[in-house]
């Protein structure tokens, strides 16, 4: 039965070794996908290169379908997988702020570590900026706390929120992602056919 750690298959020290291995795989794939480059990541927001969208949604539907099937087969106890609680308005506001930081700085927290480790100076500077931003948040936390804790909805998932079966929600996300890939390929082809002529 899985999650293995929850069922006591190994202890806390072993879990840290697993963290290291999973982290290495995570960093390796991010770098291979081109996510150690800010110009590659930022191109997403100018429509030239939609790799960010493609990688992210392929990863989401892969893990989602894996969860669904392992849960269905009775191998994985889905209720034992930790879901972050929803705080709707602060997460919406945080996402808007995060998006500005993304297109301005060119990285997200994980990818800036990959950029830094492959020698990008802007990755290092972005990392230092994040340290400062988190410390700033920490320093004014007492002021922010009422907003930070507002609109609490608990651990709520899309299927529960829209009162549809889990399988239906999984199917809908997969269909939307696949449709998104078709659109993404068309947008890239269209936008990239113009600059080639200008070169």
């Amino acid at each position: 039965m899985a999650p293995l750690f929850q069922y006591g298959f190994f202890d806390n020290d072993a879990s840290l070794l697993i963290a290291l291995i999973i982290g290495i795989a995570f960093g390796f794939i991010l770098e291979q996908a081109g996510f150690g480059s800010a110009t590659k990541l930022a191109a997403q927001f100018y429509g030239r290169d939609l790799t960010v969208f493609k990688v992210m949604f392929t990863a989401i539907i892969t893990a989602l379908l894996g969860m669904f099937w392992l849960g269905w087969a009775g191998v994985l106890d889905l209720s034992r997988v930790y879901i972050l609680p929803t705080y709707l308005v602060p997460q919406l506001a945080g996402g808007i702020i995060f998006g500005i930081g993304f297109v301005m700085g060119g990285y997200c927290p994980g990818t800036c570590c990959v950029a830094a480790t492959t020698g990008k100076m802007d990755g290092w500077i972005h990392f230092l900026g994040m340290i400062a931003g988190i410390a700033l948040f920490g320093e004014i936390f007492p002021l922010l706390e009422p907003f930070y804790s507002s609109s609490s909805m608990g651990q709520v998932t899309l299927d529960a929120y829209f009162s549809v079966p889990y399988g239906v929600a999984v199917f809908a996300v997969v269909v939307i992602a696949l449709a998104g890939f078709v659109v993404a390929e068309r947008v890239e082809r269209k936008l990239n056919s113009i600059p080639v002529a200008e070169k």
Binding site: P90, I100, G129, G133, F137
Partner: peptide, 12 residues
């Protein structure tokens, strides 16, 4: 951008 993102990630 890093400052803004660090702040946003904590709020979210």
């Amino acid at each position: 951008g890093g400052i803004i993102m660090g702040f946003g990630s904590k709020l979210a």
